[in-house]
Amino acid sequence: MSAPAAPTARERRRWAQYLVNERAEARVYRQLASRREGEERAILLALAEAEGRHEAHWLDLLGGEPARLPRPDAGTQLLGWMAKRFGSIFVLALAQNAEGRSPYDDEPFATPAMAADEKVHYEVVRGLAARGRRRLAGTFRAAVFGANDGLVSNLALIMGIGATGAAPQFVLFSGVAGLLAGALSMGAGEFVSVRSQRELLEATEPSNFADGGLEHLDLDANELALVYRTRGMPEDEALARARRIVQAAQEPGRSEPYRRPVEAADDHEVIGSAWGAAFSSFLFFASGAIIPVLPWLFGLSGIAAVVTALLLVGIALMATGAMVGLLSGGPPLRRALRQLLIGYGAAAITYLLGLIFGVSMG
């Protein structure tokens, strides 16, 4: 039987790259774990330990620590930089994308267990990131939608009015008026929307309306079981619980809660605060809507102001799109380009309408 072929220089470089990447990823998970407690901390430390096993595999193939090691790849370095400076939700979202791009499926020197580990890591990190996304969902949604609406609507308004040949002062006044009107409308609408959602949830929660009559119910024939059946409890379980509740109410010194825990608290957390959503929506709409107005605020006019506004809004649209993509676990560049096309498309339509209206009035 012939001896296995010695690894080539290219293979050793690839293994060394895997080695430093695994070390860097383990460091990221340990840094995140240092900021968490309880179950999340234990999960992150377990991920770091798994990356350590992968590191040991490449060390074994390399025959020990190489004299020189490459730097971790750019994505892994970015993860490490963010882990030191930002909240875990952003880092976990990036780590989710990184785990989903594992090269081990096509790597002949990686074991099948390592490739399988990376797939499981993706799901674990996605689960951890989902917890953070739920905590961000209500106010973050209002903030992102507010900023995007402010950017697109005010750019479209200014482009449409500017295309009619209106004076720069009128364009500026229209932009400021659009900012205030839109921000107030967004804030009020978000407040009403979130408050209505919370009120609907509260209407579905169990009440204590029947508590005062529990001790007078017949132990063997009562309708309390129907209450639990309306909440999805199986008939046998509902009957047993109803009997237990009534029996506890009829015995001095005993009590058992009539209302079973529901998931409404989690739903309230996802929806967020009505005032928080309204304030975020107002603030971020205004911060988005001010950007296309800036060229006219600083005295620009004509084509220079239009081009500057388009550039500033384009950068902002791509930034918000990339952030949404990052936090949702999707590709940031694709989301950024989608936001850019939507914003520029709306501006182009209103600009053409403004040109047509300006010509017809001329």
Rank of each mutant, 00 (worst) to 15 (best):
A6T: 10
T8W: 02
A9M: 02
A9Y: 01
E11M: 03
E11S: 07
R12G: 01
Y18I: 00
N21V: 01
R23H: 06
R23K: 12
E25Y: 01
R27I: 00
Q31D: 13
R36F: 00
E37W: 12
E51V: 01
E51D: 05
H54L: 08
H57P: 04
H57E: 12
L69R: 10
M82I: 06
L92A: 03
A95I: 01
Q96D: 05
E99A: 15
D105L: 12
D106L: 10
P108G: 10
A110S: 11
T111Q: 09
P112L: 06
A113Q: 15
A115P: 02
A116W: 06
D117W: 05
Y122D: 03
A129K: 11
R131D: 08
R134H: 04
R135I: 02
L136P: 02
A143W: 00
F145E: 05
G146N: 04
D149Q: 06
D149P: 01
G150S: 04
S153C: 07
L155S: 09
M159N: 02
G160E: 05
I161L: 13
A163D: 03
A167R: 15
V171Q: 15
S174R: 04
G175D: 09
V176F: 02
A177Y: 01
L179E: 04
A181F: 00
A183N: 02
E190L: 05
L200S: 15
L200T: 14
L201C: 00
E202G: 09
A203T: 04
E205G: 03
L226C: 08
G232R: 06
M233Q: 08
P234E: 13
P234N: 13
A238C: 11
A240K: 05
V246R: 10
A248C: 03
E256F: 02
I271N: 10
G272T: 01
S281N: 08
I290W: 02
L300P: 01
A305G: 11
V307A: 11
V307T: 13
A309C: 07
G314Y: 11
A316S: 15
T320L: 11
L341T: 08
G343P: 00
L352E: 09
L353W: 00
F357P: 00
